[in-house]
Design a protein around this nucleic acid. Sequence first.
DNA 1: CGGGTCGTTGACACATTTCAAGTTTAGTGG
DNA 2: CCACTAAACTTGAAATGTGTCAACGACCCG
Lengths: 253, 253
Amino acid sequence: MLEGQQSQPASASRHAANTSLAGTRLGASPYLSSEERHALEGAALAIRSIAAGTDLMREGERIDLFYIVIEGWACRFKTTRDGSRQIVALLMPGDVANLDSFAFGRLDYGVRSLTAIKVATIARDRLSALSDQHAAIAKTLAWLAMVENATLGQWALCLGRQSARQRLAHLLCEISVRLSEDDAGGSFELPLTQEQVADTLGLTSVHVNRTIQQLRAEGLIEARGRTMSIVDFEALCRIGEFDPAYLHADPTS
Amino acid sequence: MLEGQQSQPASASRHAANTSLAGTRLGASPYLSSEERHALEGAALAIRSIAAGTDLMREGERIDLFYIVIEGWACRFKTTRDGSRQIVALLMPGDVANLDSFAFGRLDYGVRSLTAIKVATIARDRLSALSDQHAAIAKTLAWLAMVENATLGQWALCLGRQSARQRLAHLLCEISVRLSEDDAGGSFELPLTQEQVADTLGLTSVHVNRTIQQLRAEGLIEARGRTMSIVDFEALCRIGEFDPAYLHADPTS
DNA sequence: CGGGTCGTTGACACATTTCAAGTTTAGTGG
DNA sequence: CCACTAAACTTGAAATGTGTCAACGACCCG
């Protein structure tokens, strides 16, 4: 299981592999010339491995590095005074954990690894400088922020106006699509506990459990251990009113 | 009442006043030199007046203008198949209605005026070209997107994890602060119907009504007609767990 | 004066939460 | 490899916040 792995010592070489941003959203920007892509690569620092369940950043903290998830899952979350948690973003390979550190000094969310992860980092001032020199890099950051916005807007619709069943169906569809750009609907490792799913959907873990079982009973999904199989992707989409357009996965839309 | 006003003929001069972006978020960017600010001003087209309750843009539409609210209120919203609506942003003077038209061809939300409004517009390709020439303009767009993101994240927390009472308190605090940067807590015109408040908070208009009355009975607010008075701002903040930091109203944070 | 939108109220239904107990699973150390 | 432990999942019963339905009143505008 992914959770079991321990973090490797945070040694690693001073210079990251040239290709560390290859599979990344940053690297996938439609705005970048190869020169600019290269400049970004050059700014990336050593890749670090981090154990599951580690707090990478805490709400209110000042952060001077961008973290880019290379492997594994993490999440952004916010908490209320009474301690309940709302996950506001699932960070999967390619995602930037704290994009808005570009604009803000303090984080208004925490970031935690959900599995063991590997992250690349870029110094804040380094990226800031690069975005001054290359408009395309600044445009890329704007684009990334807007993609996040679109996703968050969709989540707001789910949270505000959909039933538990719909939200769960929607989340499973989203994850499935984000994991496998082309052929959604297969089976995949879902490294979220039911409580974390609940924190994503604004529900209780108890209710998530019941809702999962409902979908399971209807033959729409199969869940054994950490493995989630989507049996009837079409039906799930219909239930969750899922339309992948909002993910803006295709940089050329 | 604001709603009553009819839209002036969409005449207006070809060239907007030089200062059309002055009170605007775009104009308030911390990144812009006066030259760049000037370039943006030059790109702004005539200011148009639009009646209350007008759909400016529809979900899925392609838009080649940015709309910037100069006066009045509008909202971004998404709808579910069964017709229920979730407002995902309240657009007040200074806000850009469709920022992500910068990155995406199709809108995944609609925009509707809530009162009679005045908007400035900027051609999409014009802004795109400007952001190619001036990294600071691209940075400004990134910054704007990140501010929207922060707000939406806070809304997600409210929608997912707070009670009706908390959400309402939070919304009133947010509006109060956004309207009067410095001295929040006075009284202001709230041009939202209870149904629109409900669509913002992910509730029913009936329940919003009851919740308002509850706050009213506790002496925290007074609401007569369209006028909303916040009697005990401190208490409202405490109830709604409102901390204005997430609004990032101060460009220098 | 009349019609429509918006606000208000009551009774009731129901989705989701809460609380509390099991059971299973996964990870740890002997 | 097994025993032990903690975390995760499961289940039931009861409480409750919010939704639904339906009616009525107030106000505004034409």
